[in-house]
Each structure stands twice: as C-alpha cells, then as structure tokens.
Design a protein around this nucleic acid. Structure first.
Lengths: 202, 202
DNA sequence: AGCATAACTAGACGCTGACAAGATGGCGGG
DNA sequence: CCCGCCATCTTGTCAGCGTCTAGTTATGCT
C-alpha cells in the first residue's frame, strides 16, 4: 500500500491522477499509456512496471474511485441523513471526478474480477444502502420494499449524473446541475415519502 | 438514403450491423475498423469510403439508434399510453440494442455536431416528452412541473438501464431486468401519481 | 562495501486508424 | 453500341498504440 520515494518520486500515484485528469478532459478512449508516461517524464514502458497492463491501471483508478465514493457517502450520511442529500453527494462526486466516474461503471475497461476492486465497490454499495436504510422519511414502505426504493433512487441519481455528463439534457438543467437535481429528485422523493425537506421553495 | 447494390451489396449497412453486434459482444473500445472490414469480406480500407473515419461510423450508428428509439417510443405511446410502459419500452430498447445504446450516449466517440444525428436525437427526445405529456396519471402536478417529473422519470429508467448493463446491481435485479424495473419504476410512479397499474401482484 | 532487487530505459513486434494512389466495374451520354 | 466517368474497392504506406523482452540504474539491507 504505502509507496516509498524512488527514482521518480511516486510514479504510480502520478500516473493515476494524470489518467483521471486526461480522461476527464478528452474521454477514456483517447487515453494512452505512452502519453501518460510522457506527461510523467518517464519512458514509454515505465507504467508497465506499476500496472500489468492498461486495464490494470484502470482497475486501480476505479478502485480508488469506489473508495472515495464510499467515504463521501459515509460522510454525507453523518452530516445530514437525508435521502435527498445522499443523492446530491453522489451527483457531486460524479461531477467532481468525472474521469474516474466514467471508468468506474465501464466494466469492459478493467479487470472486473479484481478482489480489491470488488471490495471497494461493495463498500460503496454498502454506504449507499446504509444511507438509505435509516431514512428520515419513507415510513410508508415495508422493510422488504426499502430495497426496491433504494434501487429506484440509485437509478435516478445515477441516470441524472450520466445523462448530464453526456450532455443529453436540454439546456434547462445545464446551468447548475446540482440545483436542478435537488429540485427534480426532491419532487419525487418528497411525494414518495410524504415528508417535505423543502429544498428551497416556500 | 436508399442504397443501391454495388460490388458488395450494401456494405454500409453490413458494417453498421456488424459494428452493433461487435460492440454488444465485447464493448466499443475493442471495436476495430479493420476487423469489421474482415467480417464483411472487404479490404481494410473499404469502410473509409462510406464513413470518413471511425467517429463517422459511430455517428451513423448512433443516428440509426436514435431513430429506432424514437420509433419504438412513438409506437409504445400509441399502444398503451402509460408512463410505466414508456419506461419499459426505453429499457427494452437498451437491452435489445445494447451495442447501439452504449454508443448513443457516449458523445466523445462520435461527431456530436452532425446535423443528422442532432435531428434524430431531437426526434427521440420529442417522442419521450410527448409520451410523458399526455400521461394517464400525474394530475397533481402543474404543466410546468411536468418537465421536472419527465427528467426524473427519464433519469430513473436510463440509470436503471445503464446500471444493469454494467452489472452494477446485486443479483436480485439480474434475473429479469424488465420485470424488476416494472416493479421498481411502478412503485415510484404509482405513488407519485396515485394511480396503480398493478404490475402483477394481487 | 557489496549485492539483490525495485524502478526504469531501449528496442522490437503486431496491431490499429488514416492517408495516397491505383484497379475494377456498372451506368448514362454520345 | 460503346466509351468514358465516377463511385466503389484494393494495395501499399505511415505514425502511434499496447505489450513483451532484455538490459541499465539506483536504493536499501546486511
């Protein structure tokens, strides 16, 4: 886990952050190992020593992403255990780390069976479900049905994030996606639970 | 539009369908123009005459996809103008044409400014919003707010489709995604509108 | 001090997308 | 009828990519 300083310093982490930045800028398909090596000022084969192959690098990137997401979701839950705010946290993560987020849900790009990745993904899923379990709202649904509502909520916020990132929405939601999501998610969630966190309107 | 028969027959369409199949099998990143040409039994540079470049082929594929989606949504609306069934149609399309669907929302892969593509995308969006406008339900929301609910519904079904396709869901929903979605979407939509289409349960 | 080894370099291979220049064949104007 | 035109397709070429192999440098342990 802990990386010492070697010739470069910490090439592994430099490559990962450079990759996240490059993907956020110009998409994952135009990412090149050799270009990453160039940015880091090392030879074209140097990355191969830290990551078995390109999929290995993306596996590490996705793993980091799931860990960060799990942490963010856990923090959000403690701050204000609101289903709506949990969704906003999810969206904020997708926007702030769009390169990493893009890779996380492209299982064809990395080694999906990697144990570290699976563990991190599970931890993020647990954080998500945990945040939904002790909802401040939704007293109307039985415990069994919580799972269904959780899938619906996850689907909605994930779909909103991906659609917005791909520019599929009309400009209405393009200005401030977080605020737009707060209104949209809030409308469904509050109607569902009968509890009104009152996003902002009177 | 209409393609005559030439040396190959109809290479353009053959390439597009082969591309959709190949992407559905092994992802868009492992798609190769040369492999497509090999499958069609032509030389490696033949595709270049029908599509300016790889992005051009994917642009055409996405355009076809949006046209098909618009058609499917329109048909669904006529068959049973239910918001739930419209969502199911959307999901069915994503599952049946997962290769095409994957490309449609990856704007970094194709020429996003292509006029034909923009027109097809707009037509699909219109079909989606039209299907939501004359809902059988949702009498509680004002006409302005229909747009917000539409975005929420679109986000939810889109998110469900992409999450399922990426294998992110626990196995619970993995068996029959359409039925699972019917339950999940129905739970939110019916609670929202106060109308119960009663998916299947007693 | 010396050495095993992690970290990196240099070179090569087959593959890819893209470009240029030549071959092939159907169709309309003479 | 046939002849030239042009869309279609082929062959050849190029730089760049991911990956493999072999060789080089520098670090930390004994």
């Amino acid at each position: 886990m802990t990386r010492q300083r070697y010739h470069h310093g910490d090439l592994r982490r430099a490559l990962l952050s450079a990759a996240a930045e490059a993907i956020a800028e110009s998409g994952v398909n135009s990412l090149s190992m050799r270009d990453l090596a160039r940015r880091a000022g090392v030879s074209h084969a140097a990355p191969g020593h830290h990551f078995a192959d390109k999929a290995g690098l993306l596996t590490a990137l996705a793993t980091d992403g799931f860990q960060q997401l799990a942490k963010a979701l856990g923090t959000s839950r403690l701050a204000s255990n609101s289903l709506l705010e949990l969704g906003v946290t999810y969206l904020r993560f997708a926007l702030a780390h769009r390169g990493t987020f893009e890779v996380m849900f492209r299982t064809d790009l990395y080694h999906a069976a990697d144990p570290d990745l699976l563990a991190a993904r599970q931890r993020a899923a647990d954080a998500l479900y945990a945040g939904m379990a002790d909802l401040p709202d939704a007293p109307a649904v039985a415990s069994e049905e919580v799972r269904e509502v959780a899938l619906a909520a996850w689907s909605m916020v994930h779909g909103f994030a991906t659609l917005w990132l791909s520019g599929a929405f009309p400009d209405s939601a393009a200005e401030d996606p977080v605020e737009a999501a707060r209104v949209i998610l809030g409308r469904v969630f509050t109607l569902h639970a009968g509890v009104i966190p009152s996003p902002e309107a009177s």
